[in-house]
Design a protein around this nucleic acid. Structure first.
Lengths: 222, 222
DNA sequence: ACCTGAACACCGTTCAAGT
DNA sequence: ACCTGAACACCGTTCAAGT
């Protein structure tokens, strides 16, 4: 299942070594925190490895003991965030398995938005640097994971059947991440966030309802 | 209308001077082309000002005569691309004013997808560097322009009325740019593109139809 | 095992000198 | 008006030396 997600680029970006002593585990944790702090305080342009090390209270050399290059550091921080979001979607999926399609739709849309807005600053900060590294494989992996969970849950709905569930799940998860990303990328206007929170579930429900209708008309015409 | 879109950051990123002679106009054009070529051939990481100048056949100093820094160069290239997309949406909007809501929906979704996929490589290349500069204002400006055109066209539909047209137009344009962005950000799998082309109009129509129904029930309950 | 920080290569940016 | 390219400051990355 994850055989082709572990490509060359992923391996290239992996941390250099895993901490085996309490001291170094603390060091890595400090570096992680420092990265987000510098990103939030000084912006993407002023995010330098020296500055991160300084803020973490270690020397640059120490940073490079755990991360082969700046990219891999940013990669690790982004990975942490995206996996938290994927985890939130997974939980919501398991929670709504076998329920009605509207309940599932509202549950997934809400869970996704909650996960993103819970760490709103981190989300926006990471969007800013996500292009400074080769994130294609990571994005693919997380997208696939979210997609699979969504497909499984939609298929379990008691009151709906879909002809092409893979296409529907693909669009559903693309809509969640895409729309949320576009809105959060802009200045965070509370009114926009409110509109998004109100309208995203509406759009999700509307799309699924149409996909269902197509399923019915197709099965009745056969 | 564009008074608050010309913020400090925008001005900061403006080109240093406008070419007044044929020779320098050619130079700027060569720099633009070289930027996209280097981006496509060498990737975002290897995009250096020296490399761009070299490829354009000029010296670095010449490049810095027209662009105060690397950011402003990337900014100008991105602006060119986004304005072409906005232009395509504008045209589609004018073309479909006063038609049915389904025709409008299909027309806008198709025009947006066409504009993005027409320069697919440039689109993806620019997504990759869009976070290396301060694009917030540019994105806001283009988003606002697309939003305004969409709102105007939706309001002109002969067979539909919306209670909160600003919310609907906001979500509609966010869906277009967000979903397309998320799909194009991933490896361009032809099957995915095909699914997107088939399902995006479906989702747009479904959302607008639901927004209309809400309009009707609200007006009939008053 | 883990940490330090001076040293090196490379990139963005400038500016005195050219046409 | 426009162009050149050596020079400078700064950042990513390394590695010999320390605990």
């Amino acid at each position: 299942m994850n055989s082709h997600t572990q490509s060359a680029a992923s391996a290239f970006l992996k941390p250099r070594k895993t901490p085996r002593q309490a001291r170094s585990a603390t060091t890595v944790e400090a570096i992680f925190d420092a990265t987000i702090q510098v990103l939030l305080a000084d912006g993407a342009t002023r995010l330098t490895t020296t500055r991160v090390a300084e803020r973490a209270g270690v020397s640059v050399g120490t940073l490079y003991q755990y991360f082969p290059h700046k990219q891999s550091l940013l990669f690790a921080v982004l990975k942490r965030h995206l996996e938290a979001v994927a985890q939130a979607v997974d939980s919501a999926c398991q929670q709504h398995v076998g329920q009605s399609i509207d309940t599932i739709s509202d549950g997934l849309a809400g869970a996704f938005l909650d996960a993103k807005t819970a760490h709103l600053d981190a989300s926006r900060a990471l969007y800013l640097v996500s292009s400074e590294m080769d994130t294609a494989d990571l994005i693919d992996e997380i997208s696939l994971r979210v997609y699979a969970a969504v497909a499984m849950t939609l298929a379990s709905a008691t009151d709906a059947r879909f002809v092409d569930i893979s296409a529907v799940a693909f669009m559903f998860s693309a809509a969640l991440s895409g729309i949320v990303r576009v809105v959060l990328d802009r200045e965070v206007d509370p009114a926009m966030l409110q509109t998004l929170r109100a309208e995203l579930p509406v759009m999700c429900r509307a799309y699924l309802a149409t996909a269902m209708r197509r399923a019915h008309s197709e099965s009745s015409s056969k």
